[in-house]
Amino acid sequence: MPQKLDVHAGAIETLPPADFRWPGGQRLGIFFRVALEGWSDDQWPGFGPMGNPLKPGTPDLNALGWVEYGIRRGIHRILDVLERQQIQTSMLVCGVLAERYPETLRRIADAGHEIVAHSWGMDVIPAYLDEAAERANIRRTTEALEQACGVRPVGWISPRASPSVRTARLLAEEGYEWHGDTMNDDLPYLVRFGDREIAAFPGGMEMNDTPHAIRYGNAPRQMLELFDDWLDFVQRHEPGAVRLNPSIHGHVFGRLSGIGVFEELIRRARALDDTWIGRQGDGIRHLRQSLR
């Protein structure tokens, strides 16, 4: 008989109450996210801005350099925007970057942004690992980020948000408070594996710069139209709490062609009423308080 596949197989889920609201009683929760991605030694992205991948096995230094822009240049521009707009975000960071750029990671943490573990490298995808290798990857990534930042990460999002059938359980066992490896709901909820609990914080790809601009070739400014359309609908038709995760990458909208759109998104969000802008970990802690 075929086995039923489930992101949280064997777990008990607890959904937020029907009257759930974000901190301050706000109905709209907006979580700006920034991803800083790296690849293991002798590995490189399988895609790039040219759109025509090289022959299998050929080192693609064009794609590698394109991604390295994020940690070398883009993140500093993004941090300046966030400081100017006076908001703190959740930042997805690969563990390999902790070894290569510890000073940059320390700047991120010192600014109060949440460090979210993003596997050791984008080539280390939990869906491909056995249990021992996956647990080792979680520990290696966690320790490297903690050493570089001085703060132990409590949130995890896998590359491609592609977990294995055991990822959520292993993260709970390793002390993580939440993961973002699912797109199966609008709001976060709690998941219990025996005596261990972790929160699932569903995300979405509707406002993510990589598929938006790289895969589909949309202009950066079209992201503002997506935001306005989302806002118009939820204000008129959605009676309960909602969330949105506008997500950018240091190597995509961290460039001069996209950074202005990112800052404009923040400006529009800050001008709204009935809206809370925060870090995902803070949203999870608020959810737990509401369920007590």
Score class of each variant (00 low, 15 high):
Gln3Gly: 14
Asp6Arg: 11
Ala11Cys: 05
Ile12Asp: 13
Pro17Ile: 07
Arg21Val: 09
Trp22Gly: 01
Gln26Phe: 12
Trp39Glu: 08
Asp41Thr: 13
Met50Ile: 12
Gly51Asp: 08
Leu54Ala: 03
Lys55Cys: 14
Asp60Thr: 09
Asn62Met: 15
Val67Asn: 05
Glu83Asp: 15
Leu92Ile: 02
Val93Asp: 04
Ala98Tyr: 04
Ala109Leu: 09
Gly121Met: 00
Met122Gln: 11
Ile125Pro: 04
Tyr128Pro: 11
Tyr128Gln: 14
Tyr128Ala: 13
Arg135Met: 10
Glu143Leu: 09
Ala144Asn: 03
Glu146Gln: 10
Arg152His: 09
Trp156Leu: 02
Pro159Thr: 04
Arg160Lys: 13
Val165His: 12
Ala172Leu: 03
Gly175Pro: 03
Trp178Thr: 03
Thr182Ile: 00
Asn184Leu: 13
Tyr189Gly: 04
Asp195Glu: 14
Glu197Gln: 11
Ile198Thr: 01
Ala199Thr: 00
Pro202Gly: 07
Met205Trp: 15
Pro211Lys: 08
Ile214Ser: 13
Asp232Met: 14
Pro239Ser: 09
His249Ser: 00
Gly250Asp: 05
His251Cys: 09
Val252Asp: 08
Gly258Gln: 06
Gly260Asp: 04
Val261Phe: 01
Ile266His: 00
Leu272Val: 06
Asp273Met: 11
Arg279Tyr: 01
Ile284Gln: 01
His286Phe: 07
Leu287Trp: 03
Gln289Arg: 15
